[in-house]
Amino acid sequence: MSFSHLALIAISSMLVNNFVMAKFLGCCPFLGVSGKIKTAVGMGVAVTFVMALASLFTWLVQYHLLVPLGLGYLRTIAFILVIAALVQFVEMVIQKFSPALYHSLGVYLPLITTNCAVLGVAILNIDAEYSLLEALINGTFGGLGFLLVIVLMAGIREKLETARIPAALRGFPITLIAAGLMAIAFFGFSGLIK
């Protein structure tokens, strides 16, 4: 477990196998909350935070609760419960200790429960048989990758507002096509890791 091995996981989950661009996880908020840069940053930060915590807690639940008890088949149910509880908890903690941050994230926090990037990273960590540290890094950098693309997308969409677009493509279709072009750009990162 060398440093370069961990760095490889970090780069892979942030850029090469970006959750939105390559794995299609977290598309709903990516397409839904990317209208303005400010809200996109808020959503991205909140998701990063929850993804890191979810990686940690679901790993503990899997290897210290489900596996010893032979309840592996309850994984999906257990994980979604952990994530829902976690989001609720994070919401309360932020509200208590940082009301300012709470007000800027407020609306997005409950939405994170149904963000498939969070459940996705939890399941992928287990499927890849990552250790606790590897899972934590995968979750944190996966979240940072999400933050990166949602902010980039918001920037593009703010420009698209004033662009001349064929009537039929206005709104959602042009956003998808822009996301597709962005995904092509992210293909360029695939050379980073052999």
Binding site: M21, F24, F172, I177, A179, G180
Partner: peptide, 13 residues
């Protein structure tokens, strides 16, 4: 991956 976004965008258009 990019084809998914582009196909859906064009189909909706």
């Amino acid at each position: 991956a990019p084809g998914g976004f582009i196909t859906l965008g064009l189909a909706m258009g």
